[in-house]
């Protein structure tokens, strides 16, 4: 399936782009992360410590075991610092 992957804050900087459209067969977020981290050293460094990364599927927070199903947009970002 085609998926838009968005990156924010230092993940965006490490990967070098705010978003990319990818073709994937990943079943869960965890599978997708493994696939992305395999792409190149920039992706690998962004996903090196998943304890420091939060994820959203179609703009809803999700954990790594969440299934992608018919997801259209996935986002990766550090813990939020609003307020």
């Amino acid at each position: 399936m085609m998926l838009d992957v968005l990156y924010f804050a230092w993940l965006r900087e490490r990967i070098g782009q705010p978003r990319e459209r990818i073709e994937t067969r990943a079943a869960t977020l965890r599978d997708l992360v493994a696939e992305l981290a395999d792409r190149d050293e920039w992706h690998a460094s962004a996903f090196a410590d998943m304890g420091a990364v939060r994820c959203a599927i179609d703009q809803e927070l999700a954990d790594l075991d969440a299934p992608l199903d018919d997801a259209r947009e996935v986002a990766f970002f550090p813990p939020m610092t609003g307020g």
Binding site: F8, L61, F77, M80, T81, G82, G83
Partner: peptide, 20 residues
């Protein structure tokens, strides 16, 4: 909102962009 609103802050110092 401090911990759940999707915002990310970065400090800008005299040398430009600084730490997240």
């Amino acid at each position: 909102l401090k911990s759940r609103a999707p915002f990310w802050k970065r400090e800008i110092g005299p040398d430009g962009a600084g730490a997240w």
